[in-house]
């Protein structure tokens, strides 16, 4: 249990965002931010301040940079980076004594066997994870194809923007929620196709986050199994939407550990 106020005032969060902490310290901050919503909130707020400073100091790079960077991206093999970066090469001491050589040889065989078993196990886990992701993506695409033609007849496309919200894997994997923002009347239609049922005494809250970090409560609803379209009031300067689950009596700020879906507008 930490003293949240003291922790925030310690300056650790600014150091985290300044990139001056060690890897261990960074992980510690991330763990604490996961446990304490107020700290996650403060982290997001400071982070948004950085965005303000970035806006003020914006400068157009030279025109050749766009192609130069793209060519570098095309020439870089990112798969190779990821697969070779973390390989650890074991160092085996040299010896001229046969028993030691045999022992080391057996150890190497055992090590290699275990190594490949771990690799195989990891591969299976990766395949299972990929299957879950594919299922999720398939569900989203299927839903898009099934429902968008209906939506297009409901809303005037000239005045409408759509955002497919991304499920937060910590709380849900297969949620499908689409935000439809009607600019003509500044209304938001939250098309909830799939979402876990609201917990007892809880409801879902949609929040609009502005460029400077203000978190605006756009309204709440209860979800019980069936798909539904929820009408809420919109805001014009949102850069991000997040859907959280909160207690029915309401809260002033979103609980970051209870984020179910998000959508970034950029």
């Amino acid at each position: 249990m930490i003293n949240v106020k003291e922790y925030i005032e310690s300056g650790t969060l600014e150091d985290y965002l300044s990139g001056t902490l060690s890897e261990t310290e960074r992980q510690e901050v991330e763990t604490i931010a996961d446990e304490y919503p107020e700290i996650a909130q403060e982290l997001a707020s400071i982070s948004m301040s950085l965005s303000v400073m970035a806006d003020i100091g914006a400068e157009q790079p030279a025109s050749y940079m766009e192609e130069r960077i793209w060519n570098d991206i095309l020439a870089t093999n990112f798969d190779e980076f990821e697969s070779t970066e973390d390989i650890i090469t074991p160092v085996i001491p040299k010896t001229s004594k046969l028993p030691y050589i045999l022992t080391i040889g057996m150890a190497i065989v055992a090590f290699v066997t275990i190594y490949y078993m771990i690799i195989a196990n990891n591969k299976i886990e990766q395949i299972e994870q990929a299957n879950i992701e594919l299922k999720s993506e398939y569900d989203i695409l299927k839903y898009d194809f099934d429902s968008l033609s209906t939506l297009s007849s409901i809303y005037d496309i000239e005045n409408t923007k759509y955002y497919v919200m991304k499920p937060n894997r910590r709380n849900t994997i297969n949620s499908i929620v689409i935000i439809v923002w009607d600019k003509s009347n500044n209304k938001i239609y939250l098309d909830v196709k799939s979402l876990p049922n609201s917990d007892t005494g809880k409801k879902y809250n949609l929040w609009g986050i502005t460029q400077i970090g203000r978190q605006i409560n756009l309204g709440s609803f209860v979800h019980k199994g069936k798909s539904q379209i929820v009408e809420l009031d919109g805001i014009k300067d949102a850069v991000r939407y997040i859907l959280t689950q909160e207690k029915e009596s309401g809260v002033s700020y979103p609980t970051m550990s209870k984020v179910y879906t998000t959508a970034d507008l950029y």
């Binding site: 991330e30 931010a33 996961d34 996650a40 982290l43 997001a44 982070s47 948004m48 950085l50 965005s51 790079p61 940079m65 130069r68 960077i69 570098d72 991206i73 870089t76 990112f78 980076f81 990821e82 991304k166 937060n168 910590r170 986050i209 850069v239 991000r240 970051m256 550990s257 984020v259 998000t262 970034d264 950029y266």
Partner: peptide, 24 residues
């Protein structure tokens, strides 16, 4: 700027949207 874009492409799997926006 070039390094930043390369790192973004390289480490996109490490982005965690519960800790902030993609831009930050």
């Amino acid at each position: 700027l070039q390094e930043t874009f390369i790192k973004v492409f390289k480490h996109v799997n490490r982005f965690d949207d519960s800790k902030g926006t993609f831009f930050t």
